[in-house]
Write a protein that binds this DNA or RNA. Structure first.
Lengths: 206, 206
DNA sequence: CCATTCTGGATAGTGACACTTTCTACTATC
DNA sequence: GATAGTAGAAAGTGTCACTATCCAGAATGG
């Protein structure tokens, strides 16, 4: 497969593929001459993954690069990939949390038995969210966290089941990346639909 | 309050405040002279809201403008604000869904009794997610939707409760905006924490 | 054989975005 | 009366994700 066919079957313009090659998001094709190279199914597959991460996951090109690096490192454990993917998906630098917000999040983590995750980036961005809520006068927002967490636990169990179910079929690591990124997008969309449904029922249509 | 004090108490640089004024994100202060204006608490409050939408919600300046416009329109109903906020938060243009993905989402909506929301942007982006999953070889991803939806319904109920609870205290519309945007960020962070917890339990630490 | 199309690789340019900088002509304050 | 601050306008900046242009050489169709 030459680059034009790769472009045709992926829908990604040739110059963009070249750009991804330059950025190390795609391995270079097998050289068959001074200015000729052949690409295979793995390239197509990788290209689709990159586009999914960018288009659906909203990852920057640099973040996709980090994910790819982890996928290609051979000595990486499943549990670690999750961390890298999650970090790549996180916001660049969450607003800093003041003491009160940090305390609320610390208490919350303690209630759930999640104390060990206090310095996880996700916990920090959670503290940032709570701090922002407080600055906006929404001091009771933190009380929502328990309900959100309850739902999240159910979702996470689903996520794990899904990944483990696919562990024979495919590359587990890639499945984990895909499930994490697509799951996020799906969940956000579904929350919107559920909100609109609830809102329509309680507050009346339009 | 002059602009420098507004800057100091919000942490937003003066030139940025001027930029927001130009973009209509902030109403102009009350003129007290040819080149002097006074800003009040409502300006500070608005400024904090703008920063929350940008920093936590990841909204573009244009999207924040749309939200502000709706908040300032007096004849708007609660249920409509939700739609505008949700649209402002959505990705610009989700990947197009092929027939198979559309069918799966249609079936899913029918199972939930959500047929009426088939042309909601959130439903479209959901179809885009499913289509992307299929392109990546994850045909069973759509089966996850029911579990996600179940969790989303619980979350949405929480969200509504929260907004209605605050309907006396504050501006309901603003509460809705804040709860929707911050809730999204909180939920995404919590899913990560829950995933890491589940992953640590099932797959072993580190 | 030869005109046209395509190739990998390098370099430079583009458009959107969210600010920043700089400017001018004033005004407030010490 | 020197210094700092102000509104408003215009131009500039840095980042990002491409996109365009070149080039020498290779593939392909007639």
């Amino acid at each position: 497969m030459r680059i034009s066919e790769l472009s045709r079957s992926s829908g990604v313009p040739v110059p963009t593929i070249k750009y991804y090659l330059r950025e190390g998001l795609l391995p270079s094709g097998e050289r068959t001459g001074r200015n000729q190279a052949a690409y295979g199914g793995e390239h197509l597959r990788r290209l689709k993954l990159v586009r999914a991460l960018v288009d659906v996951g909203g990852l920057s090109i640099a973040a996709v690069g980090d994910v790819i690096d982890v996928l290609e490192a051979s000595d990486v454990v499943t549990h670690q990939v999750l961390g890298v993917v999650q970090r790549s998906m996180g916001s660049d630098d969450p607003p800093e949390a003041d003491r009160a917000a940090q305390d609320e999040v610390r208490d919350f983590l303690a209630r759930r038995g999640w104390e060990t995750m206090a310095d996880d980036p996700a916990a920090r961005s959670l503290a940032g969210v709570v701090a922002t809520a407080r600055k906006l006068g929404h001091h009771r927002f933190a009380a929502q966290l328990d309900a959100y967490a309850e739902a999240s636990v159910g979702i996470a169990r689903q996520d794990l089941d899904y990944v483990l179910l696919h562990s024979e079929v495919d590359d587990v690591l890639e499945s984990m990346v895909i499930a994490t990124v697509l799951g996020d997008a799906a969940l956000v969309a579904l929350r919107k639909l559920a909100q609109r449904d609830a809102s329509a029922r309680l507050l009346g249509e339009e």
